[in-house]
Amino acid sequence: MSKKEIKNTGTEATRSDRAEATRSLEEIFEQRIARDEKIEPKNWMPEKYRKTHIRQISQHAHSEIVGMLPEGNWITRAPSLRRKVALLAKVQDEAGHGLYLYSACETLGITREELYEQLHTGKAKYSSIFNYPTTTWADMGAIGWLVDGAAIINQVPLCSTSYGPYARAMIRVCKEESFHQRQGFEIMTKLAQGTPEQKAMAQDALNRWWWPSLMMLGPTDAESVHTEQSMKWKLKRKTNDELRQQFIDQTVPQADLIGLTIPDPDLKWNDERGHYDFGAINWDEFWQVVKGHGPCNKERLSARVNAWEEGEWVRDAAMAYAEKQEDKKLKKAI
């Protein structure tokens, strides 16, 4: 059946034939996803599927790359060698994760240069959480524990998403990410057990990162425009509100354990629901940051643009060298 319909998309088909064929192709496509079959780069896919995936995967890649900046700030000032090697390894992983994801995204027919261009011009977004400053060492703890914790909750379901290259990249990312959260929690634990000043520093970091971490899981289901379609394509397997609840339920006992207080007076266990109830999230702040008015939006973007522009001569030199070597080899062969 599918073969006949694919032939219909040939040049002789009339416009209505083609529309009909596309509809059937789309049906076959949706059925494949419903059967949990993966979609691979050369398979036919609706244009909207391709575009949505480019948007989400690139946004994810950009987040990994921009996400190196707030932590890079503390590598040279890590308090011990143990902390320094861990932070270095974590930031290097983030670079790697960005690269896995850019490669996955490129299989959808967009070039790396176009992807960078979209980031640098502000057309593509990255996670709004990286627009907050890292003012103390405890922020390295809070980021690992909360931001990576929230990221893992978001990412684990993506390991079984419908687009093959994205799912494979996510499996690698998730495998590597769990050390990120643990090293952050270890930093928080040690600070919370330290001097009163150290404990205050940990509490202050928790106060500042808690709400942005909740926002990081995305707008409420009622506000989220992409959720329904993304669930169908298994690009999303749980809604933002479900993920947020899961994050809160899992994190609150961890804070209790190390003697830190979640900065939410309305936070209370609800026996009936079997979940924590929590206070209202300041979504105005979220949208402000998304629209570019967060504390560090300009700084983050200009750091990326500068790195790209100032690295141009290095990229050109490497290409020139490669071409020269190639020429030499050819001449020798003659």
């Binding site: 290097q92 690269l99 896995y100 490497a318 290409m319 060298y321 490669a322 070597q325 190639e326």
Partner: peptide
């Protein structure tokens, strides 16, 4: 840029 760099990058990106 070339095969040599591809090998080195592959080591850093895929075999950490």
């Amino acid at each position: 840029a070339d095969a040599d760099m591809a090998l080195k990058n592959a080591r850093d990106v895929y075999t950490r």
